[in-house]
């Protein structure tokens, strides 16, 4: 197995003593053949998709269960899973180039100018190396966050609705960029409540039932058009919402 979620449960304890169950006994697998694909987690708004991505990336710990990547538990292991949240996360106090270099420095990895140049080129940030992200668009800032993750050669990128507040034209450009990233053999897990968001490029779609996240339907696509994907998903989507 490439990625395995084993009986993941996440409980949030409120001060009033009421426990909120966001993820319940969720098990999910991506096998070796599904490596390097774009995986779309689709669930209704507020159902706990972000929490699930945070658990997979190790930002949050689960109340029960474990996340295993290539046979290793993610806890205390750097397995190359990086998370890009919905809002901009590039460091405004650093230029584009410095953002990427800082990640390498913080990881005690050598700075290889050739590789940085390649990543900058891939993320279409050429000519902007000395620009600062503040006052730049969300799309631009997403590219910096993506470049900073790509420089570390990740295995899995977890994206939490990063295109939600981005205009249509930029969104289309970024979707093309994700396809290029996929071609590098990187698995992308993209969570959104908007089915249209990246359905065009999604290879695998997980349709989660209403909260707590527990059961789902899995669909794998190869060459289907968006309309065909919609047709296949149709009934399940209707039942979901």
């Amino acid at each position: 197995m490439f990625l395995e979620l084993k009986n993941i449960t996440k409980l949030f304890n409120s001060k009033s003593g009421v426990n909120r169950r966001v993820v319940e006994n969720l098990s999910l697998t991506l096998d070796e053949s599904e490596k390097g694909k774009i995986v779309f987690f689709h669930a209704p708004f507020g159902s706990g998709k972000s929490t699930l991505l945070k658990i997979i990336s190790g930002v949050e710990s689960s109340s029960a269960g474990e996340v295993i990547v290539e046979g290793k538990n993610i806890r205390n292991n750097d397995l190359g899973l990086y998370f890009i949240p919905q809002k901009a996360t590039s460091f405004p106090w650093l230029s584009v180039q410095e953002n990427i270099e800082t990640i390498l420095k913080l990881k005690n990895q050598p700075i290889v100018p050739k590789k940085i140049k390649e990543i900058i080129s891939l993320c279409e940030l050429e000519g902007y190396e000395e620009h600062f992200p503040n006052e730049k668009s969300l799309g631009f800032r997403f590219r910096i966050s993506l470049a900073s993750c790509l420089i570390l050669s990740p295995k899995i990128l977890l994206l939490d609705e990063p295109f939600k507040e981005i205009d249509k034209v930029t969104k289309d450009e970024l979707i093309l960029l994700l396809q290029k990233v996929k071609e590098l053999g990187i698995t992308i897990i993209y969570a959104s409540s908007n089915i249209k968001e990246i359905l065009t490029v999604a290879d695998i779609v997980y349709l989660f039932e209403l909260k707590p996240l527990s059961t789902y339907k899995k669909f794998s696509f190869s060459e289907e058009s968006v309309m065909e994907k919609f047709k296949i998903l149709g009934e399940s989507l209707f039942n979901q919402n």
């Binding site: 945070k54 990336s57 190790g58 930002v59 205390n76 809002k87 996360t89 913080l106 990881k107």
Partner: peptide
């Protein structure tokens, strides 16, 4: 401080404190 910065950097560094 927006929590997103921490959520982004923590998996990269594998260390919340750092």
């Amino acid at each position: 401080l927006p929590k997103e910065y921490l959520e982004y950097l923590t998996p990269i560094l594998q260390n919340g404190t750092k």
